[in-house]
Design a protein around this nucleic acid. Structure first.
Length: 507
RNA sequence: GCGGCAGUAGCUCAGUGGUAGAGCAUCAGCUUCCCAAGCUGAGGGUCGUGGGUUCGAGCCCCAUUUGCCGCUCCA
């Protein structure tokens, strides 16, 4: 049922110029999409809502726009070179895929467990006069198991370091590792999956340096920490915000714009005094949820997901999940990243990345609380929640996008009730006035009802209609999208009245 | 990456080897003083792409690409 709804939403997004498959005339490109004439407006409006509420509305937050290309060492310091490179192997019988390094580590773990069992057995056998340390260091079976495990891990590390994938496969074969599902040893080659896109900088192929397209925007903020701190005269606690594209070579990317290989993030890195990070983590959790609810989307569509298993850099992490047509999925992450990133960059660069605290009269590496939200995912959340096929009282059906007014691509359409008696000219004059303030459209084609429906389909909150009465006293009707109710206003009051209704939070 | 299903007009789809269709949408005109499915006319498809079988392929076969579902992956 929700699959059908989701298909309709995808079709609607294309049919009305919100989202197109990338380079569609060449059959498209897997998991890449383009934003169309209305989609880019909606996306810009969401980005702008974020930027205003994060940067403009906070005294102590500034925004930057770092480049997508970064020095290759950045990704060693951040951990992405290690974490985003997985050697994978498939079992041909069970069709299951495993991380080759995990298989070998599991093998080693089993050997260690066998050694422990020997120790346990001996402990029972010798009871009171058992010297465990001596047993461990002398018993041949214990030594043998431990040696097998340690050697396997050591060999693997050596091979991965040398990028010897064939060697890793051979190691799996030699260790007689079997697939836990099929029990067979029928393995494919080991393949390296690099989740970072790689390209070359420099036009001469031989001398070109291999660089990566950033897999997250956060590092552009961390490497600029000192620049912003010094030139912006920032005092802790302070934040640096950024929106921009990031790239991940996902093994499978699916579900429309939910998981794309090229996507846009909106991130805040908030630098705080060590030890205060938990209160800021709480504060930003509240603030970010409020941001979502202020769009007018009901709280029931959101839920928290607390990370039990934390990433290597975090000491607390939670996701805001949204109920998409295909279920609750991650929309935004709020992470307490400790001083992991700045410390790492400090080490790799050899440059001091510290804040001098005038109150303590000492320097420290600040802790970081991050809020990181997917712009494309927020677009999908707003768009899919807005979509409704509404059955009216007369039994007819209209497709309407209940996009929050202030985010709508087109704010108002100006429509002459009929295409004669001078109404088109008056309507076009109103369009020229409103255009100074909002995205507006003029439409005179077809019956008025049909034109209302067309605007409903792209989520235009207001339709302004010029009729006979306008010709007499210069008043117009304003029809609101969701209620379909009309009010009559003097044309010269339109800008003021609409501006008020188009503020965030007004629905 | 593996397995299954699918790709025909902007959208939804019909078309079982013999001249490419429908509804909606779009455009032009008419009608219309307020909520689509009134009237007239028009435009738009080398049937995802490339090969093959056949006198003849949208339809059968192979490859490829894109999408969907299930695995897998998603620090």
């Amino acid at each position: 049922m929700s699959d059908d709804l989701f298909k309709k939403i995808v079709s609607h997004a294309k049919e009305y110029g919100f989202i197109f498959p990338s380079s569609e005339i060449y059959d498209g490109l897997s998991a890449v999409y383009d934003y169309g004439q209305y989609g880019s407006e909606l996306k810009n409006n969401i980005r702008s809502y974020w930027w205003k509420s994060m940067v403009q509305m906070h005294e102590n937050i500034v925004g930057i726009d770092a480049a997508i290309f970064m020095h290759p060492t950045t990704w060693k310091a951040s951990g992405h070179v290690d974490a985003f490179n997985d050697p994978l192997i498939d079992n041909k019988d069970s069709k299951k895929r495993y991380r080759a390094d995990v298989l070998i580590e599991d093998y080693a773990e089993k050997q260690f467990e066998k050694a422990e069992k020997e120790v346990e057995k001996a402990k029972k056998r010798f009871a009171d006069n058992f010297d465990e340390a001596l047993f461990r260091s002398t018993n041949p079976r214990v030594l043998e198991y431990r040696k097998k495990g340690e050697e396997a891990v050591a060999k693997m590390a050596q091979m991965l370091e040398a990028n010897d994938l064939e060697g890793v496969r051979q190691l799996i074969v030699d260790l007689e590792i079997v697939c836990p599902i099929s029990g067979s040893r029928n393995w494919t080659d080991v393949r390296q999956f690099n989740l970072m896109f790689e390209t070359r900088m420099g036009s001469v192929a031989e001398g070109a340096e291999s660089i990566f397209l950033r897999p997250e925007t956060a590092q552009g903020i961390f490497v600029n920490f000192m620049n912003v701190y010094k030139t912006g005269r920032m005092k802790i606690p302070f934040g640096i915000a950024q929106t921009g594209k990031a790239f991940r070579n996902e093994i499978v990317a699916r579900q429309f714009i939910f998981r794309m290989r090229e996507f846009e993030q909106m991130e805040l890195q908030f630098f705080v005094k060590p030890g205060t990070e938990m209160e800021w983590y709480q504060k930003w959790r509240e603030e970010r949820m409020k941001w979502h609810l202020d769009m007018g989307i009901p709280a029931s569509k959101y839920r928290w997901h607390k990370h039990e298993k934390l990433a290597h850099y975090a000491n607390a992490a939670a996701d805001i999940e949204f109920e998409f047509p295909f279920g609750f999925k991650e929309l935004e992450g709020i992470h307490s990243r400790t001083d992991f990133d700045l410390n790492a960059h400090q080490q790799f660069s050899g440059k001091k990345l510290q804040y001098f605290d005038p109150e303590l009269n000492e320097s420290y590496v600040p802790y970081v609380v991050e809020t990181s939200i997917g712009l494309d995912r927020t677009f999908l959340a707003v768009f899919s929640h807005a979509y409704e096929e509404q059955t009216l009282e007369d039994g007819s059906v209209r497709t309407v996008l209940h996009i929050p007014h202030f985010l709508a691509p087109i704010k108002a359409a100006v429509l002459p009730l009929v295409k004669k008696d001078g109404m088109p000219e008056v309507a076009m004059k109103i369009v020229e006035d409103l255009r100074q303030e909002f995205m507006v459209q003029y439409d005179e084609k077809d019956a008025i009802g049909r034109r209302y429906r067309r605007q409903d389909a792209i989520g235009t909150p207001f339709c302004i209609t010029v009729d006979n009465e306008t010709m007499e006293n210069n008043t117009v009707t304003v029809r609101e999208r969701d209620s379909m109710e009309q009010i009559r206003l003097p044309a010269e009051k339109l800008i003021n009245v609409l501006s008020e209704k188009l503020k965030p939070g007004k629905l």
